[in-house]
Design a binder for these strands. Structure first.
Lengths: 93, 93
DNA sequence: TAAAATAGTTTATATTATAAACTATTTTAT
DNA sequence: ATAAAATAGTTTATAATATAAACTATTTTA
């Protein structure tokens, strides 16, 4: 009935990040920041957590002279997201 | 796109409690404890929070000689739950 | 009548989310 | 040329949260 909800995904900001990333090939830090309305600090921390869990991959590069952080969801992340959504349905019908 | 998720409902145990209560007239402490698998302490705290928010009503009485805590969802609680579910859909499609 | 069970509450702890403060660099304005 | 502001983040401090352990009070059972 009430399956455990992956605590890494049961967080407003991290869920928003994953929700964004599941629909695109990749997205940049600034883009995610704008879409989610998160502060840079909070976003940085949450991206790290998702990255450490293997749910997203994070690549740092340069666009001209500016640093760019590019994120994409991994296969593991997609599976975790799908399982989370499935578990959630046990709660919200 | 990403509406704020009511932090009172965005909690595994409180969401499970609300999910249970939305389907019934009322439910007793022990019943909720069994269905959710929560410890009594945790359940007590979370019921208090939902009660203080006006999402549920809690009535204490006796069944024979044993104390009984009976909970039911309020109109306010139903609305909050529905809004939460609606907001959540912006995240999980 | 001592031990265990029932029905909870209170309190302490560990985790978490979050923003404030910070670093490093680049662009713009004077 | 250089001071001020903007960009792109990271690190750290704090406040909120979830959770279980410890506790109270009563009743049932051995």
């Amino acid at each position: 009935m009430f399956k455990d909800l992956d605590p890494l995904l049961h967080s407003q900001l991290r869920l928003a990040i994953m929700s964004l990333l599941i629909g695109v090939d990749s997205a940049e830090f600034v883009f995610i920041k704008e879409k989610t309305g998160a502060t840079a600090g909070n976003l940085s921390v949450q991206l790290d957590k998702l990255s450490n869990a293997g749910y997203i991959s994070v690549i740092k590069s340069f666009k001209g002279k500016k640093p760019v952080t590019t994120c994409s969801i991994t296969r593991v992340g997609i599976k975790a997201f799908e399982e989370y959504v499935d578990s959630l349905k046990g709660y919200i019908g």
